[in-house]
Write a protein that binds this DNA or RNA. Structure first.
Lengths: 338, 338
DNA sequence: GCCACGCGCTAATGCGCATTAGCTGAGGAC
DNA sequence: GTCCTCAGCTAATGCGCATTAGCGCGTGGC
């Protein structure tokens, strides 16, 4: 593959020749180097700048990266399909935040779309990844690959996860949502309305985000009762028999499914039973139920993740930060029947 | 800025040393060069491959780009804000298509988010753009910058516009929607229902997409009547007085505004007047009116734009292609009153 | 026995830039 | 007049890779 020659792009040497200086000088001017040694008089600087402006010269980013090791390009890796697909709507706000912050700090975003899906999973470290083209990388997805994380940490590649992650052979930098606190608040509000027996509907484990929710629940409820989303059909009866008056659904879609089931059984929400959801819908759940629950600060998480990443690239320390979720008043929480 | 040294990444030289061959050989193996000259026996190849696998070596994309001029990275430049913002929903499907195709052909996407907004406009050729990091670029937006286009053409930078564009100092490659044909079809269907006097509501010029719509209208209507979206409030009366029985709204939002206005005047849609829309909403227009009109094949346009771009990069010829729009049956077109 | 030839590999080069070491000439100290 | 300093540059180098030219050695022809 012979280096293509589209109109023979300008190089610093060309600029140097036109300005009657050396390539070194052009580089110095371009990077605004005003070191003690190598100071360049305004006249020379202006001459070079003028030629640059007139020719519209722009440094080759690849060469720049190679020589200096920096790029102002941030990678974005998404474990879940972001654009097409069902989960797209959930991830969109994160990307909005990421994009906003990138624009703000003059960075371009490299979407690692080339990662092939092998056995239903994507991996950062696939054959021929372009990780090193970016200065660092933001990781997005409900569940990250632990091998990827371990290797990223080991190689000391600058990255930030959107969402809290357990350690992986070292500290994993992240900007997450404070699910435990959000769930505790929800539990407190629910109890303040007279509910004494609460249940948690969901897995409560595995992806950190689920585990965190359940932890918040377990921490604030004396005898935490957990129901699996796949429970047999008599779940409703068992719940009621157990004296449960409020259910917290880990997943929005589970909340919808439960409410449907309750409707069929003639149990009214929130008249007979309150149903809360722990976050925004990650799967499309067509419904117009206005659930009480909380909002994940997705946009802000994306934004701060990029912020952290740039600081990390500048040599800062890895940070782990949790953002508060916002209580969302809805129509599915009512005082417990007495 | 001294080239950072995070764990001293592997290079081909390292692989070469480990495999007991030269760096050249590693490169040859890596790129599967089986040229007549420089053929490498399976044994050597395997040895090198094994070391590569064991070490997890991946070539530095920046160096690769510099040396070979290729990258498998496609740029995406959007003139309108894509992620946040009102117009986001309109552009989203294009990106879905772009992303799909990029994934399919193993390319990463470089989002040029660093382009600053100067005087309300974004430019591809801003200070310090990273255009040259990508092999080519997809352009997205209702209205592209003509200077950008001219320069892209002049520099023979591989790019494809999503949406038809007028020439800019040369042929502009694009994958667009065939608005003239779509509007002609709509006109034909409308006339088939007995409508004889039609009006076009919109600018009918400026961005190519508007001009094309109006052209399709003007081509198929004897005495084309055009109404500006900003017309005075007596527009409705004038329309009716002119004997118009169907209005084609260039913009979805204009169709909504008109329908509201009609409602207030006691004119029923489509009972008294049919209102069609020429494409999907580009601005958020909260309404549940089910307009008759057509759908822009946005996803497919994105997909084909990337396809064209990769072919262009491979040395193919610039292509201009229009995709058909799909008729969308709605509830706002009815037979003309007799 | 000598040369031609081709296989299997490597040394050398350059991509465009940032950086380091060092050169040149003017001016001042003595 | 000599030496030193320092401002203002430049030559040279290397980043990691792809590519070109070419080396050394074994084999076959005659």
């Amino acid at each position: 593959m012979p280096p293509p020659d589209p109109a023979r792009r300008l190089t610093q040497r060309d600029i140097a020749r036109l300005a009657g200086v050396s390539q070194t000088t052009v580089s110095l001017v371009l990077n605004n180097r005003a070191d003690a040694d190598s100071r360049i008089p305004a006249e020379t600087r202006d001459r070079v700048m003028r030629v640059i402006r007139e020719t519209g010269y722009v440094a080759d980013p690849a060469a720049r990266r190679l020589a200096a090791g920096r790029n102002r390009i941030l990678g974005v890796f998404t474990y879940e399909p972001v654009f097409p697909s069902a989960t797209g709507d959930f991830f969109h706000p994160f990307l909005v935040g990421i994009e906003e912050c990138a624009e703000h700090c003059g960075c371009d975003l490299l979407l690692f779309t080339s990662a092939p899906t092998v056995a239903g999973r994507k991996r950062v470290y696939h054959q021929d990844h372009r990780l090193r083209l970016a200065d660092g990388c933001v990781l997005l997805g409900r569940e990250l690959d632990r091998e990827d994380l371990t290797r990223l940490v080991a190689e000391r590649y600058p990255f930030v996860s959107v969402g809290r992650r357990d350690d992986a052979g070292g500290t994993v930098p992240y900007v997450g949502a404070d699910y435990p606190a959000a769930v505790r608040e929800l539990v407190a509000r629910t109890r303040a309305m007279g509910h004494e027996r609460l249940a948690y509907l969901g897995h409560g484990s595995s992806p950190e985000s689920y585990a965190d929710r359940f932890r918040g629940f377990a921490e604030s409820v004396p005898e935490p009762l957990r129901l699996s989303p796949g429970e047999p059909a008599d779940m409703v009866e068992r719940v009621l028999a157990a004296g449960v008056t409020a259910v917290l659904a880990e997943e929005y879609a589970d909340g919808v499914a439960l409410t449907d089931l309750l409707g069929k059984r003639g149990v009214s929400v929130p008249g007979d039973l309150s149903v809360l959801t722990l976050g925004d819908p990650t799967r499309p759940a067509p419904t117009d139920i206005d659930f009480t629950g909380f909002r994940i600060p997705r946009r802000e998480m994306g934004r701060q993740a990029v912020e952290e990443l740039t600081e990390l690239i500048e040599g800062g320390e890895p940070v782990q930060r949790l953002l508060p979720c916002e209580y969302a008043e809805g129509a599915t929480l009512a005082p417990a029947r007495t």
